[in-house]
Amino acid sequence: MEGINSEIIIVILATGIRLAAPFLLAALGEMFTQRSGVYNLGVEGIMMMGAFVGFFITLIGGSPLLGIAASLVVGALMGLLMAVVSVTFKAEQGISGIGLYMLGWGLSGLLFRLYVGAITTIDGLKPVAIPLLSDIPFLGPILFNQNGLVYSAFLLVPISAFILYKTTWGLNVRAVGTMPEAADTLGVSVQGIRYQCLIVGSMLAGLAGAFLTVGHANMYADNITAGRGFISIALVYFGRWSPWGIMLGALLFSMADSFQSMVQVLGINFPYELAVVLPYVITIFALAISFGRVWGPAALGKPFQRGTRG
């Protein structure tokens, strides 16, 4: 284990921050969705669609920004589909989510095969060093030499918190998720809010997918998300539906991941599986020892029908 020095630590931390971005984006989206009373298990599928479309548009359009924009659009469409099925048609949210996941996985793979055909690489987002700040010793390269999507993901944390706690819309979202009947009585459209949240949440999931292709791997291949959508859903529970908590969870998970990669690379002498599962174990462990009241949006998972209860 020679070679542990500040440079290595900078690499671990900077990588951890970069890798937190997709989790953060998708989990913040899922947070809005769940706050309004719908749980969307289809995040993984939406991410795959976002990943493919982001990649594809970048490939043919030549600009990662176009790709990112397209991933937002396709995310919104997937969210709309989920909303039609689970809000208008009041379908079981668990099944709808898994259906959306299968559709997203299949459709992204299919479109890739039809319109790209072979593994191809793209020029994705480049890191943007923020002047002055990136020169700060130690912290500079960790925090201020990332790509634009990473900054956006972290900026979304305070923005989400502000929207959720300080705006009327945020209040409505929270009301719809906990007391839909009361919200309805007060003239808030329960269905409308849920539609909006599903669409916004899915746009963020699409963006998270685009991060993987345009902001990280610079290519697309089958199953690119590899379970990251499901982990994002889990992180919403880790963060107890609060943006800051989710950020903590995403950072913890990805830091643990980047740490275990480095430990493996620097030479270990035990089954690597122990290293690979480290982030998962740490996340469970951290939640287990953390204190705080556990609650959730009371109407989570329950379709709303005016005039009926539950």
């Binding site: 048609f89 709808s96 259906g99 299949g106 992204s108 299919l110 095969r113 039809l114």
Partner: peptide, 20 residues
């Protein structure tokens, strides 16, 4: 492609669950 298989399975699940 195998992806077509999964896409159609997903569609069937979504449509049937909505018809509920």
């Amino acid at each position: 492609p195998a992806a077509m298989v999964m896409a159609i399975q997903g569609l069937v699940v979504l449509f049937v669950v909505a018809s509920d």
